[in-house]
Nucleic acid binder design. Structure first.
Length: 516
DNA sequence: GGATCCGTTGTAGCT
DNA sequence: AAGCTACAACGGATC
């Protein structure tokens, strides 16, 4: 008799889940054990990779997965806490039947290494253990196959990605890439595996209680996104399927003037990224939903279109697999060496806590901390500010903060975006395009209303400040500061750097670094 | 092989 | 107020 251990890692869903479908349908399998392993320290702020919002989103996603496994397939999700390899080792020993560990391929170095170690578990005289890494459904492309192709070279632009997509998928009769339909939810489950209880097993309710007791205040606040496959599919239907005109007209760079403070009714982007990073939503599912819209008429094209956004995601996944030291600033062929300043605790803390004296930057950093979300162009502005724009700190520091705090945190994409925005990657925009931390009325932004209101919401010190000075309050005459109830330097910080001087100096430094 | 073009989303200052 | 121009100026691909 064989038990399929279905190891959920990123693919926190039952639709389009090849591993789960295999376990439910294969003749090789007699019983099933769905497992999630929590290998990271969670919840506490500090150096860990899971800050509060990310943890809450994960726990909600696990709750939803657990419920749907039970409801649809009569299976119970087991959650184990501990290091991956040890946990798997103990688990297969405690099974009554032969174990067949089934999991999805993952391109991250740590997991690639782990899959070798997992194979070794089977070869060390243990006949009752087999394992299989299934092709990933986390990406559209087969990452391993693509980077191992003799014609592969690191993609740098959308043109490169279009070539890779054409080669891998071909096009069908209506000119779309020939991408397979997502798998349906399996119709029948298998019996749940028999298992004695394990010392490191934890209940989801324990995690929920932990969050409530550790973060009572934060748990009480509204959140933009709730984790889970159910939420993901509902949001997909509401934001994408139901809005063909929105999908067909979608142009990412044009989503700025709408509300930066996520409005659950009508945000400017789809807000689906947290569901993609956890795998609550299948990338094939959203790709195909966009296609349905595209069939109805004219539509935007990559790089700006929704398909274009997904292709950039694929690009970062490819690069993160093919570029050694993808997450490092040295020994990384996709990272130019820049003489960033040494770590400056004061500057970093001002940036992270939203106390730079630049209200637009501070508003977004506070929004990130409280909600786990920031609009994509806000991410551009704050990362440029930290690196080549103003503070001249290494991108890896900012990367760490984003990784911990963002609900859509994703190793390949987060590193890729920082490489790009710090101006160090080969696919970067020209480095002299420095974002202005103080939007003004001459830009395309709607200053009078939305952005000013956004700042007043997240930087309440400035709630009574006139719009004219709201992005550079230190320039307001003192009587105005006093009558607005916020004296700059006392109630809200003075700018920690002069934005124009630092911009000029940093442009020159960047040029020198490139010449060396 | 030198010139030209292009890269997902720029800024500042002027009219 | 929107739109223009100058700025600053890399590096790889393409012709």
């Amino acid at each position: 008799m064989t038990t399929a251990v279905v190891w959920f890692r990123k693919c926190l869903r039952i639709h389009d889940n090849a591993v789960l479908s295999w376990a439910c349908e294969s003749d090789e399998v007699d019983s099933v054990l769905p497992v999630f392993i929590m290998n990271e320290e969670i919840g506490a702020e500090g150096d860990n990779k899971f800050g509060f919002n990310r943890t809450r989103f994960l726990v909600e996603s696990l709750r939803d997965l657990s419920d749907s496994l039970e409801r649809e397939l009569g299976l119970k999700l087991m959650i184990l806490k501990g290091a991956y390899l040890e946990t798997i080792d103990t688990l297969i020993d405690s099974l009554e039947d032969d174990a067949f560990l089934a999991y999805e391929y993952c391109s991250e170095p740590e997991i690639l290494l782990l899959s070798v170690e997992i194979n070794d578990l089977g070869s060390s005289g243990r006949t009752a253990f087999r394992s299989r890494a299934f092709p990933a459904s986390h990406t559209l492309l087969d990452i391993e196959k693509t980077v191992r192709s003799p014609t592969y070279s690191n993609p740098k632009s959308m043109k490169d990605m279009e070539r890779i997509f054409r080669n891998q998928f071909g096009t069908n009769e209506i000119g779309f890439y020939d991408i397979k339909d997502p798998l349906p939810v399996p119709e029948i489950g298998k019996p749940m595996a028999e298992l004695k209880s394990l010392h490191n097993e934890i209940e989801i309710s324990y995690l929920e209680d932990y969050l409530l007791s550790q973060y009572p205040e934060r748990m009480g606040k509204d959140q933009y996104f709730h984790g889970g496959e159910g939420e993901a599919l509902e949001r997909l239907a509401r934001k994408v399927t139901a809005r063909p005109a929105y999908v067909n007209n979608f142009r990412k760079p044009k989503t700025y003037s709408t509300n930066l403070q996520e409005d659950p009714r009508e945000p400017s982007t789809t807000g689906l990224s947290p569901y993609l990073s956890t795998g609550c939503l299948s990338i094939r599912k959203i790709w195909k939903e966009c296609e349905k819209s595209y069939l109805s008429g004219e539509h935007s094209q990559p790089p700006e279109s929704l398909h274009g956004q997904m292709m950039f995601r694929e690009m970062f996944y490819l690069l993160s697999r093919s570029v050694i030291n993808w997450d490092k600033s040295t020994g990384n062929e996709n990272c130019k060496e820049i003489n960033w300043d040494d770590f400056d605790r004061s500057k970093m803390e001002s940036w992270e806590s939203g106390m730079t004296g630049y209200p637009f930057i501070d508003a977004m950093m506070r929004q990130l901390d409280e909600t786990g979300w920031m609009h994509h162009l806000g991410r551009h502005a704050v990362s440029c500010f930290l690196t080549r724009g103003q503070l001249w700190q290494s991108w890896t520091r900012g990367r760490d903060v984003f990784e911990r705090k963002l609900v859509d945190s994703d190793w390949a994409i987060n590193n890729g975006n920082w490489l790009w925005l710090a101006g160090v990657a080969p696919f970067s925009m020209p480095y002299y395009r420095v974002y202005n931390p103080c939007p003004d009325s001459k830009s395309s932004l709607n200053v009078e209303t939305e952005l000013a209101e956004f700042v007043r919401h997240w930087v309440p010190e400035l709630k009574d400040f006139p719009s004219r000075y709201i992005f550079e309050p230190h320039l307001a005459p003192l009587p105005i500061q006093i009558s607005s109830g916020c004296v700059i330097g006392k109630d809200y910080p003075l700018p920690i750097v002069d934005r124009k001087d630092s911009r000029k100096k940093n442009l020159a430094r960047f040029k020198i670094s490139l010449q060396n």
